[in-house]
C-alpha cells in the first residue's frame, strides 16, 4: 500500500515538474517576444514623429528665414533616419534627430510670431507628446528586458533558460553625451 502511495506521490511530483518546466519555458518565450514587440512599438512612435516633421518644418520655414542652418540640420537628421540601415545607425540617427529638434524648439523662442502660430503650437504639442510617449515606451522596453534578464539568471528559471539558449538582452542606452551635466549660467544683470 505504502509503495503504491509513494509511487503515486512520485508520479504527481514528476507531472508537476513537467508542467512547471512548460510554464517557465512558455513564460520566457513570452518575455523574449515581448521585448521585440516593445522595441517595435518604439519604432511605431519614431515613425509617427518622422511623419509629423515635414509639416513642422513647413510651418517654421515661413517665419524662420534667418535660421536656415537649424532647419537644414533637422531635415538632414530626418534624412539620416530614413536612410539608416543597421540598428546601430538607426539609433544614432534617431538620437541626432532628437538633438536637432531640441535645438529647433530653443531657436523658436526667438520668434514670437511663430510661437503664437496655431498650427505650430499644435504640431509642437503633438511632437512633444510623441517624445514623451517614446520616453515611456523606452522605459517599458527596459522593464521587459530587465524582467527577462533576471528570470534567465534566477533559480529555478535558469535551469530551463540555459539548456534552451535564452541569452540575455541589452537595455536601451542613451548617447553618453547626454549623461553630462547641463551647465546653466545666469548672465549678470
Amino acid at each position: 500500500m505504502a509503495i503504491w502511495i509513494l509511487l503515486g506521490v512520485f508520479l504527481f511530483a514528476v507531472l508537476v515538474t513537467i508542467f512547471y518546466v512548460i510554464a517557465v519555458y512558455n513564460g520566457l518565450v513570452h518575455l523574449k517576444n515581448s521585448i521585440d514587440k516593445d522595441w517595435s512599438n518604439i519604432d511605431v512612435l519614431l515613425k509617427q514623429r518622422f511623419d509629423e516633421l515635414p509639416k513642422l518644418i513647413k510651418v517654421c520655414e515661413g517665419y524662420m528665414q534667418h535660421e536656415r542652418q537649424t532647419l537644414e540640420a533637422v531635415i538632414k537628421a530626418r534624412q539620416m533616419v530614413g536612410g539608416a540601415g543597421s540598428e546601430g545607425q538607426k539609433l544614432q540617427a534617431q538620437n541626432a534627430l532628437t538633438d536637432t529638434l531640441r535645438s529647433l524648439f530653443m531657436v523658436v523662442e526667438r520668434y514670437p510670431d511663430l510661437k503664437a502660430d496655431k498650427s505650430f503650437r499644435q504640431l509642437g504639442a503633438r511632437i512633444t507628446e510623441i517624445e514623451d510617449q517614446i520616453a515611456d515606451r523606452r522605459e517599458l522596453y527596459n522593464d521587459t528586458v530587465n524582467l527577462y534578464n533576471i528570470r534567465i539568471e534566477q533559480f529555478p528559471d535558469m535551469l530551463v533558460a540555459k539548456p534552451f539558449n535564452f541569452n540575455s538582452r541589452r537595455l536601451w542606452k542613451i548617447d553618453p553625451a547626454h549623461r553630462q551635466d547641463v551647465s546653466v549660467s545666469f548672465a549678470k544683470g
Binding site: 508542467f19 515581448s34 511605431v44 522605459e139
Partner: peptide
Amino acid sequence: GFNLFLLKRRIENTPTSRIRSLAMG
C-alpha cells in the same frame, strides 16, 4: 491550480505601462 500559476507568472512577466503611451495589445 496550474492556470492560476500561469496567470501569476503572466502578471509578473508583464511590466506596467503608463497610460499616455499605451501600445495596442
